[in-house]
Amino acid sequence: MTVLHDLIFDYTLRNVALGSMLLGIISGVLGSYAMLRRQGLLGDTLAHAALPGICVAFMLTGSRATIVLLLGAGIAGWLGTMLLLHTVRETKLSEDTMLGVVLSVFFGVGVLLLTMLQHWENANQAGLDRYLFGQAAALVAADVRLFAILGAVALLVVALFAKEFKLLAFDPAFAGSLGWPVRGFDVLLTSLLIIAVVIGLQTVGVVLMAAMVIGPGAAARQWTDRLHVMLPLAGVFGGAAGVIGAVISVQAARLPTGPMIILSLTAIVVASLLLAPRHGLVPEAIRRRGHHARLVAPSLSRGDPA
């Protein structure tokens, strides 16, 4: 009960929990699309590619306002993705090669800029290094409001184009044969994923963001075979991981929030892999034993050939 009380009345915990929950919901839904389109690593690349954008945004404006830094992150992430999509289309390099290249080059530039900022007159990196591993405790009410607005826009677009995004993810060639602008939808869906990643930078950081993108969808897929169930379920799993991680980290012994969110999510993923009724490993093992008992064992005991 005290947890519930604190969630409502403790300013820090409320903001951290709400911010983490919003991040989990948005990255869960959009990450599901990335996963189904076999672009699980796109989130990782996007997050790393966003780092130099944060640094440049600060260098140009001198502002530490969340919206300024996240705008820089979004632009850099977007440039990285367009570079990725363009080179994959126009050259013989495969997508995983380019994911690796974009990730490391942009991240390298980002770390370089961070180090340069350290030697600037107003010093102390302006606290930008918190974007590496995230610092959810620094979330304020204004940040949460910003996340809520960005998330609402992203989810609204997903709701409107549910049919289009489904066909794009399942069979882009068929979508193209209908005359749909497949590349345009591709850019739109990726841009929404960038929003999710950018929200996550402040909370779980560049390094751990990939798990927030892939985890909720992977867990949700275990429980259902229908996309219109999987997407909201991924949002619920992501949001739950956010709240649980936030509560544990703030209430217990000052553990870092980002890693606690990821560990909570990992617990959900592992439980789903093991226990989900149709696809889980444990139910499957039980079913297999049942089959064995009914089909194989009687024939063995009768001495029939297998």
Binding site: L36, R38, K166, A169, F170, D171, A173, R221, T224, D225, R226, L227, M230
Partner: peptide
Amino acid sequence: SVDWQFPTN
């Protein structure tokens, strides 16, 4: 050309 593991019927 498509992934038949896609969650749909």
